[in-house]
Design a protein around this nucleic acid. Structure first.
Lengths: 179, 179
DNA sequence: CTATATTAACTTCCATGGAAGCTAGTACCC
DNA sequence: GGGTACTAGCTTCCATGGAAGTTAATATAG
């Protein structure tokens, strides 16, 4: 799942430069590495989820409920938006969690269409333990970077995301000057 | 699919800090953002793949064959390793590509067990065009970062990946001094 | 040479997620 | 208050990928 010897991305770029010298494949150095690193980190995180019998999707749902605060409930559509999946996928995640006794479903009083998904006591205990383990795991992974590296990376990621959200493909403007 | 107003990751951290003040959730600032940015970029790239009637997996296979150079062929197991999926997934990708007339399968002469997957002429034309479009797309996305930002990001991603591959969870050592 | 182990690809089965349509409840308007 | 539009969740169907087992070919030990 991770990169093989040395640096796979560099090897891929070298092949392209031989085969298609007309193309500038330099963006792969960043985008390809970002892609692979994200996949690698996800695999590392998944190990912890599975230790608690959870898939990534189920962990995300339990976490979203937990951080909502007492009484630890949210509507399915809200959960879908939070965890960036469709409502169809959310229905099935909730099915699994309900079957495992970690959440319950109920109708809302105000609106007969509305549903509420809530953590059970077992669900709250599980996610509290699992999330603490998850954080220890993230600390371990992030600990491979020095403090200034962490800050620099956070800044770069945040800025890039903002620019993606902001403009519809416009290029960087006045960025070089502000450090 | 992307982050909602302002900065979702910061909002998530704020919720955790209210609910679990005993935990240090700072790693999410980097890992969470990396995760979301990667997902966002992948979605952007997928648009181009789909314009050519390809899924991400199929694009990857055609690209791996193309950059192998003439005669544009590789063994299924080799392709599976290159694109980081299991051989079972690769079998099905090749099935789809073969059905679409973009690749052919043949037995190897030396080893009766071995197979070779090769680009057809139609496959080579398609991936040449699709990959050029893909690179234009990556240039557009990366163009949101200034040159120095690109270099800094590439360095950080490469270093982190190397340290993940290298040690089995050891912490950073002697890194603070060489920035 | 025969038996055993290994290897590569394929097959089968299952879990997950997306897209589109369905159902039930609500809001609005005349 | 009856008709229309909307909304939220659910259901159905399909595509994808992983895990484990199967098949066929090759290598190796005795």
């Amino acid at each position: 799942m991770a990169s093989a010897p040395a640096d796979r991305v560099a090897a891929i770029q070298a092949e392209w430069r031989r085969e298609r010298p007309d193309l500038d494949v330099s963006p792969q150095a960043v985008i390809g590495r970002l892609h692979r690193l994200a996949a690698r980190l996800t695999a590392e995180l998944r190990v912890v989820y599975e230790r608690f019998g959870l898939g990534e999707g189920e962990f995300d749902v339990l976490a979203a409920l937990r951080r909502a605060g007492a009484p630890f409930e949210r509507a399915p559509g809200e959960l879908a938006a939070h965890t960036m999946v469709t409502t169809g996928a959310m229905t099935k995640r909730i099915d699994r969690l309900e079957r495992a006794g970690l959440v319950t479903r109920r109708r809302t009083a105000e609106d007969g269409r509305g549903r509420m998904v809530a953590l059970t006591e077992a669900g709250r205990r599980l996610i509290d333990e699992a999330f603490a383990a998850h954080m220890r795991n993230e600390h371990r992974l992030l600990g491979l970077l020095a403090g200034e590296e962490q800050e620099a990376l956070e800044r770069l990621l945040t800025d890039w995301q903002e620019r993606l959200d902001g403009g519809t493909g416009h290029r960087v403007e006045g960025v070089e000057g502000n450090g």
